[in-house]
């Protein structure tokens, strides 16, 4: 059982089972936590009210299983389908307005740095493409220009899902949608490239089809943000409702879209500083392994 996550014995009989489970078998303070804990540990994400089969929910589960330091992580969301999940997440998280998530995270990260100068407190933003790229773009970019030390995750479903499927900046050109009555007239905004140019030390674009890849990317993104500079992860989480897919078709849609030459083929950018930091981590891990076996 973790040390920091405890329950006052007097409360055991009145707290909900879910809380007791989190204390007993939540994966707090476990440096080796990951998606393989599914089925044996209490997940940080409980049920949600997304559409059945919505890939956002699986992406969310993979991410929550992967964050390296949940006992000291605060998340920032925005308005949109993702915010239907946040109330069920067992780390502190903030919803305030639509599109201001990177401004909130900026103040939050700085406040935590002032209040806890000797401790690690990770901040992670998770918001939709409308929030990240359209209404919140200035705050997204400005936080990167300023090299704010937190991770920005964008759930890219290429439209405004929560308001019923309107055109967004990350929508593909030509797509017919509400508010794009003759098809979207301009290209999908190239935010990963913009992120790299704007000062992100780590950028990844991917789908949520492979839990092990999500785990690797999220861990790297959070650790680099903690030590080096801002990081950005864009994950395709197709809105099956708006693109006319069935509940069980989300995974295939993600796989199709990450094939070679497709728009969500896995790509990664790692700045030289971030790379040498990752190399250092890998070396340390190797040394630990050797020490453990000899």
């Amino acid at each position: 059982m973790a040390n920091r996550i405890q329950i006052n014995k007097e409360f055991i009989d009145i707290m909900p089972q879910d809380y007791l489970d989190l204390v007993d078998s939540g994966t707090f303070e476990n440096p080796n936590r990951g998606w393989k804990d599914f089925g044996t540990a209490t997940e940080l994400i409980a049920e949600h009210s997304l559409c059945a089969g919505c890939p956002e929910s699986i992406a969310f589960r993979h991410i929550m299983a992967s964050i390296p330091n949940p006992e000291d992580t605060v998340m920032v969301g925005s308005t949109g389908c993702t915010s239907l999940v946040f109330p069920m997440i067992a780390v502190h998280n903030i919803h305030s307005l639509f599109g201001n998530q990177n401004a909130i995270a900026t103040g939050l990260k700085r406040a935590l740095a002032v209040r806890f100068p000797d401790r690690v407190k990770d901040v992670i933003v998770l918001a939709g493409d409308g929030a990240t790229v359209d209404i919140g773009l200035d705050m997204t970019l400005q936080s990167w220009f300023r090299k704010e030390r937190f991770t920005t995750i964008c759930f890219d479903n290429e439209l405004y899902a929560n308001t019923g499927g309107q055109e967004s900046g990350l929508m593909q050109k030509g797509f017919l949608a509400k508010m794009a009555p003759v098809g979207k007239r301009f290209e999908k905004v190239r935010l990963p490239e913009i992120a790299r140019e704007s000062g992100c030390d780590y950028v990844a674009i991917m789908t949520a089809s492979k839990p092990s890849l999500v785990e690797k990317v999220i861990k790297q993104a959070v650790l680099i943000a903690r030590e080096i500079g801002p990081t950005y992860v864009q994950i395709y989480t197709p809105c099956i409702l708006e693109i006319g897919k069935q509940s069980m078709e989300g995974l295939q849609e993600m796989r199709t879209s990450e094939a070679p030459g497709e728009r969500f083929k896995f790509r990664e950018f790692i700045s030289p500083e971030a790379q040498s930091f990752l190399d250092g981590l890998a070396e340390k891990k190797k040394a630990e392994k050797i020490a453990a076996t000899t």
């Binding site: 201001n100 401004a103 103040g107 939050l108 700085r110 406040a111 705050m139």
Partner: peptide
């Protein structure tokens, strides 16, 4: 800590984030 924000909308969001995190702002 002190910073220049990018617009008043962002400034008030930055203030909110810090207050959510327990700071006097």
């Amino acid at each position: 800590d002190y910073m220049r924000g990018e617009s008043e909308f962002a400034v008030m969001g930055q203030c909110a984030g810090a207050a959510f995190g327990g700071a006097r702002v």
